[in-house]
Amino acid sequence: TEDARKEAKKIIDNGGSPDEAAKFIKKYGLSEDQARELVKRAL
């Protein structure tokens, strides 16, 4: 979702790792793979 993508970008912009961002956005109901893909797109 757009919200999850924004959250991921915010985490990374604040110095978080892509892994942290992926873990965080899994709470939106995404699978591990979906979360990682979304983080990649957010970069």
Rank of each mutant, 00 (worst) to 15 (best):
residue 18 P to N: 04
residue 25 I to E: 03
residue 38 L to R: 00
residue 17 S to V: 06
residue 42 A to Y: 14
residue 16 G to N: 03
residue 24 F to W: 11
residue 3 D to P: 06
residue 12 I to W: 05
residue 10 K to V: 06
residue 22 A to H: 06
residue 4 A to D: 01
residue 36 R to N: 10
residue 32 E to K: 01
residue 31 S to N: 10
residue 15 G to E: 03
residue 38 L to K: 01
residue 23 K to E: 15
residue 12 I to C: 07
residue 34 Q to C: 13
residue 31 S to D: 09
residue 32 E to N: 02
residue 16 G to C: 13
residue 27 K to I: 08
residue 26 K to H: 08
residue 10 K to M: 09
residue 3 D to W: 14
residue 2 E to W: 11
residue 23 K to F: 10
residue 24 F to N: 07
residue 35 A to Q: 01
residue 6 K to L: 13
residue 6 K to A: 12
residue 12 I to T: 02
residue 37 E to W: 03
residue 14 N to R: 13
residue 22 A to I: 15
residue 41 R to Q: 15
residue 35 A to N: 01
residue 17 S to M: 05
residue 17 S to P: 05
residue 40 K to G: 07
residue 10 K to S: 09
residue 33 D to E: 14
residue 15 G to R: 00
residue 4 A to R: 02
residue 33 D to Q: 11
residue 12 I to V: 06
residue 21 A to N: 01
residue 25 I to K: 03
residue 26 K to M: 15
residue 25 I to Q: 01
residue 19 D to Y: 12
residue 4 A to V: 07
residue 7 E to N: 05
residue 15 G to F: 06
residue 1 T to V: 14
residue 40 K to E: 14
residue 41 R to D: 14
residue 6 K to R: 14
residue 43 L to W: 08
residue 43 L to P: 04
residue 33 D to A: 11
residue 41 R to Y: 12
residue 16 G to K: 02
residue 19 D to E: 14
residue 23 K to W: 11
residue 22 A to G: 03
residue 17 S to T: 13
residue 15 G to C: 15
residue 27 K to S: 07
residue 11 I to R: 02
residue 15 G to H: 06
residue 15 G to N: 04
residue 13 D to S: 10
residue 27 K to N: 06
residue 11 I to T: 01
residue 37 E to I: 04
residue 4 A to M: 13
residue 12 I to F: 05
residue 18 P to A: 11
residue 38 L to H: 01
residue 28 Y to R: 00
residue 9 K to I: 12
residue 37 E to S: 04
residue 21 A to I: 15
residue 7 E to F: 07
residue 15 G to V: 01
residue 24 F to M: 12
residue 35 A to F: 10
residue 11 I to W: 08
residue 33 D to F: 07
residue 25 I to R: 03
residue 28 Y to M: 09
residue 23 K to S: 12
residue 26 K to Q: 15
residue 38 L to S: 01
residue 15 G to T: 02
residue 2 E to N: 08
residue 37 E to R: 05
residue 35 A to H: 01
residue 13 D to H: 08
residue 30 L to I: 08
residue 16 G to H: 03
residue 18 P to Q: 07
residue 6 K to M: 12
residue 22 A to V: 15
residue 3 D to N: 11
residue 19 D to P: 00
residue 30 L to Y: 10
residue 6 K to H: 10
residue 25 I to Y: 03
residue 10 K to P: 01
residue 1 T to Y: 15
residue 40 K to V: 10
